[in-house]
C-alpha cells in the first residue's frame, strides 16, 4: 500500500504508483470500520445485525456478479444455481449432523466443484446465449434437487442443527460469518485484480484476440473467475440458509437473485470494486422502502436498470467519481510526475 518508486531516481522522473490519496485514506479508515462492525452485536439490537446480514449477503452477491461480468466479461443469469447449491449444502451438512456453520465452507467447496463441469458446458456459448445457458444449468440444479425426498423435495426443509444455540448468540455468529464473508470477498477480488490474473482479465476485456495471441490464457483465466464467483454465490446461499433456517427450492433457486445482482452492479457501477457495494446499499434501501408495494417495486427496479444501462453506463460510482480520480481500492497502475 505504499508508493513504489521504479528506481531511487532523480526527483523529476515519473513514478509508477498503485495508490491514490483516497485509497490511502480508505486503507486507514477500513480497519476501524471493520472492527466497529465486528463489535456491533455487543452495541446494537439483534434486529439491526439481522438486517445487516441481509445487506452483507447482497454485497457479497453483487461483488461476485461484478467479478463475473465487470472483470470477466461474462453475463450470467444462472448464479442462483450456485446460491441454491450453497443453501442445500448447509441442509445436507445438517442432515449428517455437521454444524451448519461448517456447512458454509462446504457450500463454497460444493459450488466451486460443480462450477468446473458447468464451465465446461456453458463456455461453449457466448454473449446472451451464455447468459441463458447458465440459467438452464441453474434450472437443472433445481429440478434435480427437488427429486430428493431427504431434503424435502419441492417444499424444502428446515435447518435444525442450530436449535440448541440461543437465538441471540446464533444471530451474532451468523452476523460475524456474513461480515467475514464480505471482507474476504471484497479483499479477495481486490487482490485478485491486482494479481497477474487481474492483468490478464483486463487484457481479455479490452482485446480478447490480441490477449490470446500474446499468450494470455483466456479460457483458464475466465474459468478461475467463474469458479471463484460460484464459490462466492454458494457462500451467499449458505448464509441465507443459516440466517433464515429454512431452505425452499423455489426461493433459493429463483432467477430473481440474478435480477437483484444485475440491478445492484449496474446501478452501482460495473467493473469497479466500490460500485457494486454502493449498488447493494442502494438496492437494500429501495427494497426496504418499496417492499410494501409488492411487485411494483420490481417494475421500478427493472425500469431503473434499463435507464442506467442506457444513460449512466458507469453507474452511481461513475457519477460520484466523475472527472475525479477517486479510487478507494485501486487495481490499476498510474504514472506520477514528481516536481
Amino acid at each position: 500500500m505504499t508508493d513504489v518508486p521504479t528506481t531511487p531516481a532523480p526527483t523529476t522522473a515519473p513514478r509508477v504508483s498503485r495508490t491514490t490519496a483516497a485509497s490511502r485514506v480508505a486503507a486507514v479508515v477500513a480497519l476501524p470500520v471493520v472492527l466497529l462492525l465486528a463489535a456491533l452485536p455487543y452495541l446494537a439490537a439483534p434486529n439491526v445485525t439481522r438486517l445487516l446480514v441481509d445487506l452483507f449477503t447482497l454485497v457479497l452477491l453483487a461483488t461476485m456478479w461484478n467479478l463475473l461480468a465487470g472483470y470477466g466479461g461474462m453475463i450470467s443469469v444462472g448464479q442462483q444455481g450456485f446460491i441454491g447449491l450453497g443453501a442445500y449444502a448447509v441442509l445436507v451438512a445438517d442432515l449428517f449432523g455437521v454444524n451448519p456453520y461448517l456447512g458454509l465452507v462446504l457450500a463454497m467447496v460444493a459450488a466451486a466443484v460443480l462450477a468446473l463441469p458447468t464451465a465446461l458446458l456453458v463456455f461453449r456459448l457466448h454473449g446472451g446465449y451464455f447468459a441463458i445457458g447458465t440459467w438452464v444449468v441453474a434450472e437443472v440444479y433445481r429440478l434435480v434437487t427437488v427429486e430428493f425426498r431427504a431434503v424435502g423435495a419441492g417444499s424444502g426443509a428446515s435447518v435444525t442443527g442450530l436449535s440448541a444455540v440461543p437465538p441471540v448468540l446464533r444471530g451474532a455468529i451468523t452476523y460475524w460469518c456474513a461480515l467475514a464473508a464480505v471482507v474476504v470477498a471484497i479483499g479477495g477480488v481486490y487482490l485478485l485484480m491486482r494479481s497477474r490474473l487481474g492483468l490478464a482479465l483486463t487484457a481479455i476485456r479490452d482485446e480478447p484476440t490480441a490477449a490470446a495471441t500474446l499468450g494470455v490464457r483466456v479460457r483458464s483465466a475466465k474459468r478461475i473467475v467463474f469458479v471463484v464467483a460460484a464459490a462466492g454465490c454458494g457462500l451467499a446461499g449458505a448464509l441465507i440458509a443459516v440466517d433464515s433456517l429454512r431452505v425452499q427450492p423455489d426461493s433459493v433457486y429463483s432467477v430473481q437473485w440474478s435480477a437483484f445482482m444485475i440491478f445492484m452492479v449496474v446501478i452501482g457501477g460495473l467493473g469497479t470494486i466500490e460500485g457494486p457495494v454502493l449498488g447493494a446499499v442502494v438496492f437494500f434501501a429501495i427494497q426496504q422502502l418499496l417492499a410494501p408495494y409488492g411487485a411494483w417495486y420490481l417494475v421500478v427496479l427493472g425500469a431503473v436498470a434499463i435507464a442506467a444501462a442506457l444513460l449512466a453506463r458507469r453507474g452511481l460510482w461513475g457519477l460520484v467519481t466523475l472527472h475525479r480520480d477517486v479510487r478507494l481500492l485501486p487495481t490499476g497502475h498510474r504514472l506520477r510526475q514528481d516536481r
Binding site: 461480468a69 466479461g73 453475463i75 443469469v77 454473449g127 446472451g128 447468459a131 440474478s258 435480477a259 444485475i262 449496474v266 460495473l270 409488492g294 411487485a295 411494483w296 420490481l298 417494475v299 427496479l301 427493472g302 425500469a303 436498470a305 434499463i306 442506467a308 444501462a309 442506457l310 453506463r313
Partner: peptide
Amino acid sequence: QGGELAPLLVTFGLSIVLQNALLQ
C-alpha cells in the same frame, strides 16, 4: 451503441418490468 453488455441488461430489465407489471 452501448457495447455487448447493454442489450442484455436492457432486455433483462424489460423482462422484469413486463413480468411484474403483468403480475400486478
